[in-house]
């Protein structure tokens, strides 16, 4: 069992269906990709589905080759429609929900609008026997999730649109290349307060690989998901995913 508090495991262990939600720009996709790689490295058979129907750029599909090279299955709209801004939901997604295997990670779009796609899959979710978690990614340095009430309000919007309940939090406190350990600690403080206010566990803190081994990060007291950035602007290269453990 994952959770924030006494006896919490240091490693992230997930199974069944894990839906990743959050506000625009919270880092859902980067978290979903790295979570898939992390769980794959720990021996799970992992499927990832890109359900982002609202974001035109920087989607899971940009990392499709890197994921497939590792043996991680990724469910996408048909190749010819990958660059469209149309609400295309691959029919295989409903099948994946019914038969998620060891772990199926669903990367939804941002805010309540992006989570609406989950309501369209309500029939498939009803038949699920596997464990189902919906984890909300929070970056406290984004303008509308900088306080506990705003994070809770975002959760309400997502739950209302998706007809599913958020079951845990993932902290993703960063300012891109300008992130310091202080930012991660500040973010962790807010996530702890959020976990207390909501009664839901803090599943992990996502931390860029350049900072993940810092002592101050390792002693935060919650599992750390190392982020190797995949969604980068054209003057940068994605970090290689192969040695992710």
């Amino acid at each position: 069992m994952l959770g924030y508090g006494v006896g919490m495991p240091e490693q992230i262990r997930l199974s069944g269906i894990v839906v990743i939600v959050g506000n625009y720009g919270s880092g859902k996709t980067e978290v979903a990709i790295n979570l898939a790689v992390d769980q794959h490295a720990k021996g799970s058979q992992v499927h990832v589905a890109d359900l982002d129907l609202v974001n035109p750029y920087f989607r899971t599909r940009e990392a499709r080759q890197a994921l497939r090279d590792l043996g991680i299955d990724i469910v996408l709209p048909p190749e010819g429609w990958l660059q469209a801004d149309l609400p295309i939901l691959a029919p295989q997604v409903a099948g994946l929900i019914r038969q998620p295997g060891q772990l199926a990670i669903l990367d939804a779009g941002g805010d309540g609008v992006g989570a609406t796609v989950l309501a369209a899959l309500a029939d498939a979710f009803k038949t699920v026997h596997a464990p189902l978690q919906m984890l909300q990614v929070v970056n406290p340095f984004r303008p509308n999730t900088d306080t506990v009430p705003r994070c809770l309000s975002m959760r309400d919007a997502i739950e209302s649109a998706s007809r599913l309940k958020v079951t845990g939090w993932i902290g993703n406190a960063h300012l891109m290349d300008e992130t310091t350990v202080d930012h991660i600690q500040q973010g962790h403080d807010l996530l702890q307060a959020l976990a207390r206010a909501s009664g839901l566990p803090l599943v992990c803190m996502a931390v860029d690989s350049s900072l993940a081994s810092q002592a101050a990060v390792l002693t935060l007291g919650c599992p750390i998901l190392t982020i190797k950035r995949q969604l980068v602007p054209p003057w940068r290269h994605p970090m290689p995913l192969t040695d992710h453990t």
Partner: peptide
């Protein structure tokens, strides 16, 4: 202090 924003959001806020 600094916040993390999409260009479109920053244009709107500006």
């Amino acid at each position: 202090s600094k916040v993390l924003m999409k260009g479109n959001e920053a244009i709107a806020e500006a």
